[in-house]
Design a protein around this nucleic acid. Sequence first.
RNA 1: GCACCUUUAGCUCAGCUGGAUAGAGCGCUGCCCUCCGAAGGCAGAGGCCAGAGGUUCGAAUCCUCUAAGGUGCACCA
Length: 572
Amino acid sequence: MNLFADIRSLVIDSLNAMSAEGVLPEGLEFSNVAVEPPRDPLHGDMATNAAMVLAKPAKMKPRDIAEKLSEKLAADARIETVDVAGPGFINLRLSEAVWSGLVETVLTTEGFGRSTLGAQKKVNVEYVSANPTGPMHVGHTRGAVFGDALASLLDFAGYDVTREYYINDGGAQVDVLARSVFERYREAHGLSPEIAEGLYPGDYLVPVGEALKEKYGDSLLDKPEEEWLADVRVFATDAMMAMIRDDLKMLGVEMDRFFSEKSLYNTGLIETAIKELDEKGLIYRGVLEPPKGKMPEDWEPREQTLFKSTAHGDDVDRPIQKSDGAWTYFAPDIAYHYDKVKRGYDVIIDVFGADHGGYVKRMKAAVSALSDGKVDCDIKLIQLVKLFKNGAPFKMSKRAGTFVTLRDVVEQAGKDVTRFIMLTRKNDASLDFDFDKVLEQSKDNPVFYVQYAHARICSVLRKAEAQGITLSDTPRFDDSAEIAVARKLADFPRQVEIAAKGHEPHRIAFYLYDLASDFHALWNKGNENEALRFLQDDAELSAAKIALPRAVAVVISAGLAILGVTPAEEMR
RNA sequence: GCACCUUUAGCUCAGCUGGAUAGAGCGCUGCCCUCCGAAGGCAGAGGCCAGAGGUUCGAAUCCUCUAAGGUGCACCA
């Protein structure tokens, strides 16, 4: 149920009727007609721009259209009052029955806010995709939370969602990992490890070395690298992925699928993907121009195999093979996205760190080329997280040992707080994360503020139960503050759709804050006016008054579920 | 030199894809508990939406240019 959509349908029906009656010309385009909450609630519950949007195509004055439309709308039982304001806005005030019906719907139907917007189209959300060479750090954390919440949001909005992780296990960095682990393996045998420059020094590899000893004993010690490298590589990446999965689990992130880059090699998938592009005339041998303005020192003209990505919106064509004939890293990426296209996704979303901004155009070009423009590819870039402690910047440095991992953050702040805070900024704006502030119990902390609203409601329900009150799904309104809360509830399905369309889960977090705010305001009004308290002397009246906060709790829970946050029943 | 992102109240940020008098938190000023949780609420002050043009009934939002900051710019993954 989406009240805004319902009223919009009413507006559209009325407009069609006007066309049929000859008041409006036939064949007008109504897609721009919107029904939205007015900026100022004094104007009413909803407003439509219909008259202004149609003035030009209908060759009529906005006010004239508005007057006629108003008459039609006023005839509907749901509409209490209609008035025309400003340049031609039509403000609607809905009858109280609509609001009580809404609350009843929230309480009695499963999944209020769910949408059919996605029409079960298949969406692939790829996120995290951290290299399997170490633990996840804070930067990964934000991408993980964002991707996960986006996936949940799209699911809620009616898409068929797959959560996917791309394991970069095909490149040289996993050789480095294997060598690093081998040194820890030697260490496990009492030999002093030689952590050469360029190897991974982190002591998280110590237990991996020990585990390697468990499995192989001393049998690898005297062998040359080429004999152990492949085995150790597999062993080490498996160990790293196990660690990463544990980290993700702490955050409440569970993937549907892990896709290994390595699996692309030796299966012919890269060749097939490139061949596909070749058949579209998008592969050629050529020499790239050097970048203008800045000449790399070692630049020399080289003939390479290139992907004509400029045909699909990129700035320059991109090499897919090195001069020695080996694939560039871009080639498996193409193959991977080719695989996604072949798996039949309608929408492909990649969540990258902002430092990968340079790859956006080429990836979109690849998907566009591989799917003949049929698959929608969106790439979300996640900006940095800046850590603070007590308001002071908290420097992160691998070398100094103050390397803050996902695990550190979750252990200190908790899963729910971490997730919520990570979603209180747009993905393309950087985010300040203050270890002290996020645990603070004040309205300055949005997580607390929302949880507090939910906890207050739970408190009321506990008391109601203790009093033996039989709950009712039919609310009773005595004040505009209650209507304000109901109005905000009606906005939930709409916000879900807006957020889903824009791939912007942060909107849900902001919505919940607003809802909590309206609820707290109502609560406090009860301090001055006893008639507005939820618990009354009369049990039947209490039951009716409690319906609204119950509905708020339902929506808060649903919204938090999208964000992957567990609602709090009480604060402590 | 070229791409992409950012610029909104003193500070940190929203702003429903072009709508009415641009919003919230912090900070500042003044109020509200014989109270269902004041861990809250109400009210006030605070703005040339970085700047300049343009598009139209209407622009923080779309286009162009400029300025400041960030990220990335051939075989590295």
